[in-house]
Design a protein around this nucleic acid. Sequence first.
DNA 1: CTGAAAGCGCTAACAC
DNA 2: GTGTTAGCGCTTTCAG
Lengths: 345, 345
Amino acid sequence: MPKQRVTIKDISGELGVSCAIITRALNDRPGVSDALRRRITETARRLGYQPNSVARSMARSPIRIGIVIPCQWQSFYSSLEKGIAAELDSLLDYKVTGEFYRVENPYSADDYISKLEACANDGVDGILLADIYPVGLDDLFGRISEKKTPIVTIGLPGKNTESVLSSVSVDSYCSGVMAAQMLSKSVDAGGRVVIFVGSRENEEHSLKISGFTAEAKRQGLRPEGAYETNDDAAVAERIFENLSQSGKAPDGIYLATSGAQTLPELIFRMGVGTRIVTTDVSDELVSAFRHKNMVCSIFQDPEKQGRLAVRALYESLAEHIEPERKILIPPSIVIEANLAQFIEK
Amino acid sequence: MPKQRVTIKDISGELGVSCAIITRALNDRPGVSDALRRRITETARRLGYQPNSVARSMARSPIRIGIVIPCQWQSFYSSLEKGIAAELDSLLDYKVTGEFYRVENPYSADDYISKLEACANDGVDGILLADIYPVGLDDLFGRISEKKTPIVTIGLPGKNTESVLSSVSVDSYCSGVMAAQMLSKSVDAGGRVVIFVGSRENEEHSLKISGFTAEAKRQGLRPEGAYETNDDAAVAERIFENLSQSGKAPDGIYLATSGAQTLPELIFRMGVGTRIVTTDVSDELVSAFRHKNMVCSIFQDPEKQGRLAVRALYESLAEHIEPERKILIPPSIVIEANLAQFIEK
DNA sequence: CTGAAAGCGCTAACAC
DNA sequence: GTGTTAGCGCTTTCAG
């Protein structure tokens, strides 16, 4: 019986105009005189009007989201896709549907471009673009036709960001800092530490290097280099063996890419004391957590990245809510005791 | 243009009955012949009908949730309330409203009972009950009048759980295990560790003790006792000083209650080497993270507990979804590097 | 440029 | 027991 919520009907009553014109005005659609539009927005604010998102999504025409994503090829992408699918699913009642466009060769910009264009030509209302690996999207956006379809990316889009509504990624610099701090709890002061990444060209990987190196120094450790594995387990293993050749294996390693998850096992077999911080949690990695050299993993929550990206796009499309330009997921620390929560999903 | 979603209209067409009777049947409401009810549920399943929650919440009458919660007295409760309020807020468009009943004296069962009854008498559709500290709810449920209003608790409800629809709490045993594992990364094998709790009578605290003690042993540490602080900082400090009297301060401490957050500062001032794991993140604690003795904090995410509790109650009330009887929040590890994400909220 | 009317999918109130 | 009607708050035709 108290103050009900304000509806457009209230505004309509207050102003003596029809509901139809009010929606148009409030949703920035054409076909309203400037004078009336101003009066409407004005009284809407005065009355404290908040659109009812439930009623809105009931009435509007369906929203179609196109998803351009590499074929599942790393565990990262399959989790990512799971998150995207989950969020799409929860938006089903809101008349949102997703259409997947799968990129066969994730190293080919051309493949991305053709899928992006196909997607835009199909007339989707918004596009979700999973990152190109290992480089940014600069090249891409220079070449695709200028549709005004909003794009949300997963992974940092590189320099050419004007055409991107929002990007979702992990806070990579923070990941690096966290790895260094965790290592410093198990490695004595003055210990030598290294970082392995996929490719330095990838902005997120280079941010991890910066964060890790800076913090390692601050913690009194000795950072001794960043190595590129190209996400090839064999390469990673070779590099590590070379490093240990001279009899002095590093005291700590931050394996900052989820592309070479077999390295920990090699390190255990070698019997060196190197403490390890890894990235994410794949099946191969699970058993490693029991080993004494394993410090923790830094979890990037790919599933959450997928969910947030869909949601940002939806809110922009449906509720006219401008998303943050850059959505950063804070990484989590995984140890043996809380491992379960990161794999069950 | 493919297959649209199945609606009750489709079922109605299929069976030649009205939509009204279909809702009744599908929502287990009286006034439908058993035969028809069966036919309806049958074809609903056959057609793969999924109720549209958006349309449903538009049409139904409002849902009122009563929230019985202590006056904010620990930081835990203010975060909890923030989470509850946030979730209620996001359910506004779904015609859900919350009414708060604040308990003045959280140590008095009588106060809880009177508020619970007031709440039930006001005719709310569901009740959210924040835990009684430090004991369980056993005493309570023995005495309140037997309304069938569903109750969701925050915190373990003790033995008398039949009357509780669901309980939301942190995974306390896991917290204990995590604390022990984190300490074992900084404390040498054979090190002596202790745990401080609020009260052993509190089921969650005693679970923390079990988890911590068992895992400390497994990690080769020497657990040397669990101490009750009654959430009194002065008591906690006195106990710690006594422990260190003989010149042998413990090598590690798990401060498993958020009630005595000033202890770390004392330990720093004493200049002993004791490594510290704390609980949650309060303002007093923030500066402690820079200290070398600080290992981490185990975050119980009170805000999330509040959100999940509201959601469980809502889904049960609105969507007839039976919640898990016991919803366990996995704790998170807080170190200096990721501190920000836990305080900004 | 503005309004009237229909309807999203479901539920509630009332007839039959 | 079952059907009919009238909305929930908003958007979307389609007239004017």
